Simulated scan of single mutants.
Amino acid sequence: MSALRSIVIAALASMSFAGAASARDVVFTVQIEGAAAERQVIAQNTVWLCEGDTCRARPNHAASVRACRQIARELGGARILAYGPEGGELTADELARCNGDAAPAVTHQAQN
């Protein structure tokens, strides 16, 4: 029974390492308005390779408005048209916030 248990534990451990490796294989794409001025950009400890209006990388972070804003800054304030991995791209609202287009939240004040 001990040998079987060891095999099961080893199999589970190897699957967890494979999962971590495959997560690293997720390719993010950022599409900007216009062409990137640089061929290579570093944002959030990730090297992005750019060609024309598209940059790609394999980051260790999730797609977020914050990460989008940082890549936009590193791309010279470029307007971001799309950001994230295939099937996990930021929404139109998130892209608007990334680009600073989102309207501020309306607060209701009590009237006297």
Rank of each mutant, 00 (worst) to 15 (best):
I9Y: 00
G34P: 00
N45A: 13
L95C: 09
A78T: 03
H108D: 07
A92W: 15
A20N: 11
N60W: 11
T91K: 09
W48R: 01
A63W: 09
N45Q: 11
P104I: 10
A103I: 09
Y83S: 00
R5T: 00
T107W: 13
N45S: 12
D25G: 14
C98F: 04
G19Y: 13
G77E: 08
Q44E: 08
E51A: 03
E74V: 05
A63P: 15
M1T: 12
T29K: 10
L90E: 02
H108M: 10
C55V: 03
Y83F: 15
C98A: 10
G76R: 07
G52M: 11
P85E: 13
I32A: 03
D25I: 14
N99H: 08
P104K: 13
S64N: 11
A72G: 10
C68S: 07
A102R: 09
G88I: 09
H108S: 07
A35V: 09
Q109A: 12
C50T: 09
E89T: 14
T54C: 05
D25M: 15
A3S: 02
L81C: 05
Q111C: 04
G87Q: 06
T107I: 14
A13N: 00
R5K: 03
C55H: 01
Q31V: 15
A3Y: 00
V106M: 13
A20I: 11
C98E: 02
V47F: 01
G84Y: 14
S6H: 05
R24L: 15
D25V: 15
V30T: 09
A110N: 00
S64F: 09
A18W: 06
V41Y: 05
D93W: 09
R56V: 10
I71A: 12
S2N: 09
A63N: 08
N60C: 04
F28I: 02
R66E: 13
N60G: 11
D101R: 08
C98I: 06
S64M: 05
N45H: 00
A62Y: 11
G87Y: 06
E89K: 08
M15P: 01
I7Y: 01
R69D: 06
C68L: 07
V65S: 11
T91R: 12
A10W: 05
A62P: 06
I7P: 01
Q111E: 05
S6A: 02
I7M: 00
E94P: 04
A110G: 00
Q31F: 06
S14M: 08
R73C: 05
A13P: 00
A21Y: 01
V26S: 13
P104Q: 10
E86G: 14
R58G: 05
Y83V: 03
A92L: 15
G52R: 08
G87T: 11
G76A: 08
C68N: 03
A62C: 09
H61F: 15
C98V: 03
